[in-house]
């Protein structure tokens, strides 16, 4: 068996292996996306003293599948004078990056699909693609609501992408690498060794920008159902709408996974090296716990915060987050020069 495997050319072996690994990640991810929609409705229901979906299957557990089947059986409507090609390509453009970005995600010290040195740069490039999906969808639909929603979304996502980028520069400065695995390894240690502490402002900016990037409440003027109906995807129906919907949830999971990996030590246990036996054991379960926590915060903030006004959103992005990140990068570089422990080694 081993000899047979070795006899295949290396590139074919690599392709097969990455296909299998990505297949595994993808199936877990798609399941997570489906049940994220269920979790959202359940959590929102409980927070508003309702039951949430509870009819389809045991406690409504089959609800996402029923929703999927329903959307599958619906007609795809192409509005008059819409740009057919762009109209079809837009949902694909917003879904593909949310899936493909997982290729560089480290799940454990030896658990990853690709270990590339420009990992973080790749993530940044892919997440920037989300804007194209939204803008093309809004412009190609030939609908005024869609156009307005897309313009708002474009300006908002672009503004918060800058804050996100600056926050990531802080992480790269501290880790000295763009490789996702190296960034986690550089945070080796317990709760206090992770990057969220020396970069607390950047961590908060990154998280809030993450919510704004995925167009979730309280930053969902893009959809603004009370003024522009559904924003950029008013004209989408059936599976085309479903793909946008899946992309939104896949992006939420991606942002939660990224923040857990970059700022909260990835797979490391918060009690790492403290000799607490099983509790100190690092592993995939800790990473999953962190991701789940952030996903819950997404739902929690949707149930808690009222929608921001558009000018307030732009003010927060440009006039609050941008200055905060620039100031904190300066503070961090001073901390790096003087070697503030346990995170930095110092340059002098």
């Amino acid at each position: 068996m081993e000899a047979l495997w070795q006899s295949i050319p290396e590139s074919i072996r690599l392709i097969t292996l990455s296909l299998m690994k990505f297949g595994l990640v993808l199936s877990v991810l798609l399941l997570a996306v489906a049940y994220m929609t269920y979790a959202e409705r359940k959590v929102l229901g409980w927070m508003q003293l309702r039951f949430g979906p509870n009819r389809v299957g045991y406690r409504g557990l089959l609800q996402p599948i029923a929703d999927g089947l329903k959307l599958l059986a619906k007609e795809l409507i192409f509005p008059e004078k819409s740009d057919r090609f762009l109209f079809i390509i837009a949902p694909v453009l917003s879904f593909v990056p949310a899936l493909a970005a997982w290729v560089i995600m480290p799940f454990g010290e030896n658990m990853y699909i690709a270990d590339i040195d420009a990992g973080l740069l790749f993530v940044l490039a892919l997440t920037s693609f989300a804007v194209y999906g939204v803008l093309l969808a809004g412009w190609s639909s030939n609908s005024k609501y869609a156009l307005l929603g897309a313009l708002r979304a474009g300006a908002q996502m672009v503004a918060y992408e800058i804050a996100m980028g600056f926050a990531l520069v802080g992480v790269v400065m501290a880790a000295g690498s763009l490789n996702m695995k190296d960034i986690v390894l550089a945070q080796e240690g317990n709760l206090l060794h992770w990057y969220w502490l020396p970069m607390l402002p950047l961590f908060i900016v990154y998280w809030i920008s993450g919510i704004a990037e995925t167009n979730r409440t309280p930053f969902d003027v893009v959809e603004g159902e009370s003024e522009i109906v559904a924003g950029f995807h008013v004209e989408y129906s059936g599976m085309m709408f479903a793909v946008f919907f899946l992309a939104e949830y896949a992006n939420m999971i991606l942002i939660s996974a990224l923040i857990s990996t970059l700022f909260l030590g990835g797979w490391y246990s918060p009690f790492h090296g403290m000799g607490l036996g099983l509790l100190s054991a690092s592993g995939l379960h800790w990473w999953m716990l962190k991701v789940t926590f952030f996903l819950f915060v997404y739902l929690w903030s949707r149930a808690t915060f009222p929608r921001f006004r558009y000018d307030q959103i732009m003010r927060l992005g440009w006039k609050a987050f941008l200055p905060v990140t620039i100031v904190w990068l300066t503070v961090e570089s001073i901390a790096i020069i003087f070697g503030l422990g346990p995170w930095f080694e110092g340059l002098i």
Partner: peptide, 10 residues
Amino acid sequence: QGYIPVLVVL
């Protein structure tokens, strides 16, 4: 070669 998985995944 490290980028082959990236291409496959895309």
